Structure formats: structure tokens, C-alpha cells
Simulated assay, not measured.
Amino acid sequence: MPLVTLSDVLIPAKSDGYAVAGLVTLGWEDMRAYVAAAEAENCPVILQAGPSCRAHTPLPILGKMFRHLAEAASVPVVAHLDHGYTFDECREALDSGFTSLMFDGSRKPLAENIAETRAIVDMAHAAGISCEGEIGFVGYDNGEASAGTNPAEAAQFAAETGVDAMAVSVGNVHLQTDQSGGLDEDRIAAIQAVTDVPLVIHGGSGVPAAQRRTLATQTNICKFNIGTELRQAFGNALRDAVNSDPERFDRVQILQDTHDPVVAATRTVLRTMRANT
């Protein structure tokens, strides 16, 4: 199945009451496991190349990897640039075969964020692909503090940029290693009341699974980004594989042992975004 756009998977999700997982990739082993898990659960998946992934592997290579996996997959796969910070970076992703761009201007003043996001949206739409933007800053666990999304600004941002999906800051943070927090459902309702654009939660690993399911099935949140939760699963599996035999040194053999545990963890994540699974 060829790659699809973000809108191709989010419009049905919004209509039918579920969310799609945006899974943060770091390399071949995890992205392959993510697609295998999506096939096992018979659901679409969004493969995301974030800043740390791009620092390790060039965008043109990532585009080819995503496309290779998508063409052999039995479910829809989106190749998504996560947290693109410049026009040129977004342009490179488009030229590398990505089908969705996420421009992050959330640290900028509102007018500047709108103008720069609109330029990326225009470029994406001219090429027949999707664009996600962010309004309100999503901070980091034990790092930069969040700035919550103002519903009126969210309505203006959605209307003036034409984004296909809108990431919001509603109590979520990046890099949270447990699910002790939770999202501000009143703020989500206020945002949803003023715009119909599909909403995105970055830092989804820190959102309790039960709340993920509730919001996925009852609100316009159509995409949860999941990174830390699955990085932990991969790291634990890798540690076990290395420690199981002090004589092992072949990286291919070691990395093969991460596949099944990451598939299992990913399937658990995917089930939290649909009803009765």
C-alpha cells in the first residue's frame, strides 16, 4: 500500500471516533516494528521523523525507508516530519517523499507563527500533501515549561493557516516517562468549541491510557504522538538482549531481539486509541 497523507487518516478518525498514533522513530528497527504492530491491529500508523532522528539519519534516507515500509504494508502509512523548524527543512522533507509536514512555530509570536505556518501549508497543499501546525507551546518534562493554548488564538490560527491538524498544549509535555499526569479536558472542550480542525496531542506517552481512549473516542483529538513510551520498550529490550549473553557482539543479532517486544508494546499503545480494544 503506498504512503498516504495525514488528512487521509485523520478525516476518517475524526468521523468515526478514534485516534491514530504518531509514532516517533529513531531507526530501522523501531519503524519496522511499528508497521508490523499496525498490521497486526489492522489500523493506520504515522511514522514520524523528529529532530533527534533527523540528526542521526538524513531526511532523504528516512523518506526512502518510510516509503519502502509503506509499499509492503497492508495498512495505510503516513510519512510525517515532526517538529520541522524552518521552511527549508520542510521543503527537504517534501522533496524526500514525506506525505505530511509538521511545522513548529509555537515558540514564536502568534502573527509570526501564523504567517510562517501558512507558507508551509501552501507549499504542502500545492504538492498534494498535509500540514500540521502548533499553537501554544508543549514543554518538556523537567525542562522548558509549557504555555497553554488559548482557545481564541487556536481558532484564529486554524482559520488563517489552513492547517490539516493542530497540535495544542493542554497539560501535555514531551519526554514524560510515566503516566502520572493528565490533560485539561475543559481547555480541550473550549478549543473544540471554536474549531473543527483535527487536534493533536504531543507528549502522548504521559497521558494515562484510559484518558487517551476517552479523548480519542469522544473529542476531536485524532492523533496522539507517542515517543518516550516506546523508546523505553526498545531500550529495555536492547538491554535484555545485550545482557543475555556477554559473548554476543553481532549488532544484527542483538537488534533482532528487540523486534517482538517493541511490536507487543506498540500494539498495546495502538489499542488505547480505539473503543473496546
Results as ranks from 00 to 15, higher is better:
Asp104Thr: 06
Ala165Glu: 04
Phe224Trp: 13
Leu10Asn: 04
Glu41His: 06
Gly97Tyr: 08
Leu81Ala: 01
Ile61Phe: 10
Trp28Ala: 15
Gln48Tyr: 07
Asp30Trp: 03
Glu29Phe: 04
Gly17Val: 06
Gly204Ile: 04
Lys14Thr: 06
Asp30Val: 11
Tyr34Met: 15
Glu89Tyr: 11
Thr86Tyr: 11
Pro2Thr: 15
Arg251Tyr: 14
Thr25Pro: 05
Asn172Ser: 05
Gly63Lys: 01
Glu116Phe: 00
Glu132Trp: 03
Asp95Ile: 04
Trp28Val: 15
Ala119Asp: 02
Gly63Tyr: 03
Thr5Arg: 06
Pro261Thr: 11
Ala49Arg: 08
Gly139Ile: 07
Ser15Cys: 10
Ala79Asn: 07
His68Pro: 09
Pro109Ser: 15
Gly17Pro: 06
Gln232Tyr: 06
Asp82Ala: 09
Ile221Lys: 07
Leu175Lys: 06
Gly204Tyr: 05
Pro246Ala: 15
Asp82Met: 08
Ala265Glu: 08
Leu69Asn: 13
Lys223Cys: 07
Asn220Trp: 13
Met166Arg: 05
Ala55Phe: 02
Glu41Trp: 05
Thr277Pro: 00
Val4Asp: 03
Val263Glu: 14
Thr268Asn: 13
Thr99Ser: 07
Ser244Gly: 12
Gly143Phe: 09
Cys90Gln: 10
Glu247Pro: 03
Gln156Asp: 00
Ser15Gln: 14
Ala115Val: 02
Met166Leu: 15
Tyr140Phe: 03
Met65Val: 10
Val20Pro: 06
Phe249Ser: 07
Asp30Gly: 01
Leu199Cys: 11
Thr268Arg: 15
Asn172Leu: 04
Val262Asn: 11
Asp104Arg: 04
Asp257Ser: 13
Met166Asp: 08
Ile201Thr: 00
Glu71Asp: 15
Ala216Tyr: 07
Leu81Asp: 04
Val194Gly: 00
Phe103Cys: 05
Thr228Met: 00
Glu29Val: 02
Val269Tyr: 11
Asn142Ser: 10
Asn225Met: 08
Glu112Val: 12
Thr219Ala: 13
Ile11Met: 15
Gly206Pro: 06
Ala193His: 02
Asp141Thr: 13
Phe87Pro: 04
Glu112Arg: 13
Gln253Val: 11
Leu110Tyr: 07
Ala73Thr: 12
Val207Ser: 00
His80Lys: 01
Tyr34Gln: 14
Leu101Thr: 01
Ile191Pro: 12
Ser96Ile: 05
Gly136Arg: 05
Gly171Lys: 08
Gln211Met: 09
Asp178Gly: 08
